[in-house]
Design a protein around this nucleic acid. Structure first.
Lengths: 256, 256
DNA sequence: GCCGCACCTTAACATATGTTGGCCCTGCCG
DNA sequence: CGGCAGGGCCAACATATGTTAAGGTGCGGC
């Protein structure tokens, strides 16, 4: 994977949380302690957690992409959510006794595996950090809701445009975009499982997205031509990402 | 609405939570304090909270049905979730500054409006209750995920069968089913907005669900012929409802 | 007692998306 | 070096679902 467009030695976890709350140096230190908890590595396509397992840890994506997914009995698969670096999987999972879905690595993946105790120790001492984590958790729920709108109401074209837009903005919020470009490791099969379309139709539709000059993909790197055009095509409204702590509105257009 | 199949003077909120944790009498008392917080009433189709508003309260559905929903700019509407009596809307909403969707009444609706302070006072003193509320919150997220599978992978027929199945089981868990029957206030327009189908297709498909003898609807009351048949038709797997506190498995078939 | 509206149904037709099967590339592995 | 697997593309065809438009029913309000 070409690293040229993956800039910023800055930490995506902290970078993202700063959108949600003003963190003190202490808060950042606490966040780094979470970040550095027991590290696990996975190969692409390996499962991080499997359906039926007892979820004993909170996990934080340090590097690489992962996803939640679920099968129907007859093999149909639906991807339920994406995790990019800095994303955290379910603050409170340990309350439940059993996973009802899988979490799998999309690319080679590094995660921090945080025990309930460590998580509580760290966050109890840093309410501001905890609040940011809650905010993040609520944003993830909002993203899931937006995906419902995607599947229920948007056309294939809009779904794909919307996905491109969302991923770009999420990566950018984590400091992992460069101008209007970002990494793009998703195969069309993946996109199909995310958008509920067949791979053939994803291929067709993705082509017209490119032909309309909205985006370009080269070497697993996505480049957006004009963010506003893409948003319009996707009927994209960024409010659900809640990237606007305390009324400080991000200017979605000063990307470059 | 005919009350003949709405039995049980028991409290749906507590009844549901008992699936998640063993509550003491004190816990139940605390739950009742939530239940009796400032009561609000709405007419069918009124909005409880609107997009853009600052969410200052946790709300608990005391009676009637409500839903979360969202519009696309051009008017397409997607229902994101249903609330039935005993359901609570987002434990932590107040962390965010702005609603990104609507909550609206489907039927005449009674909700308890709980301030952040009241909520924290009550739950801090009753960790067992709080844990049950967390469980419930995670179940709601799981339901949302299952809806994603619905929209992404299931056919129209399966979607509708799945919805019937889920609603029945949720109502039953709240003590609001009688045998294989439960209230059914949803219009086909609603079902269309839930399932991402057109009303015409809902009409067609719902008919074949009935013609296959899976369910019957009369006077806004749903009756399931054979729950296992319905589950099979829907590719329904109840694990996502997590109604199995401590390994005590509900027998899904002893409904009557 | 009738009007009107919300809800459901039907039919004919339009179209977005799925399916099958084949081909071509590239990178990896033996 | 050759072959194989994963990924993407393409064309022909099949079908699930959407659209439009119309008519029916039942219920609440005047």
């Amino acid at each position: 994977m070409p690293n040229s467009v993956l800039p910023s030695p800055t930490n995506p976890f902290i970078q993202k949380l700063e959108h949600y709350a003003r963190l003190s140096d202490e808060d950042r230190g606490a966040a780094m302690r979470l970040w550095n908890e027991r590290i696990q590595k996975f190969r692409a396509k390996d499962d991080v957690v499997r359906e039926g397992e007892d979820p004993r840890f909170v996990r934080l994506v340090v590097d690489g992409w992962a996803c939640r997914y679920k099968y129907l009995e007859d093999g149909r698969r639906q991807v339920l959510g994406l995790f990019i670096p800095g994303d955290i999987c379910d603050l409170n999972v340990f309350v439940l006794r059993e996973m009802d879905h899988f979490i799998g690595a999309i690319t080679p993946l590094t995660v921090a595996q945080i025990s309930r105790e460590a998580f509580e120790d760290i966050t109890l001492a840093h309410p501001r950090l905890l609040q940011a984590l809650w905010w993040d958790s609520l944003v993830n729920m909002a993203i899931q809701r937006e995906w419902l709108v995607n599947l229920g109401q948007r056309t294939a074209f809009e779904r794909i445009a919307h996905l491109l837009c969302e991923i770009y903005l999420r990566l950018r919020a984590a400091g992992r975009a460069k101008g209007l470009s970002c990494e793009w490791p998703l195969t069309q099969t993946m996109i199909a499982d995310i958008t509920g379309l067949s791979t053939v139709h994803v291929s067709r539709t993705f082509q017209t997205v490119r032909e309309e000059g909205l985006v370009e993909i080269r070497n697993r790197v996505l480049t957006i031509r004009d963010l506003d055009d893409l948003k319009t095509a996707a009927l994209f409204n960024a409010n659900y990402l809640h990237l606007d702590r305390e009324g400080r509105h991000l200017d979605a257009n000063n990307a470059a």
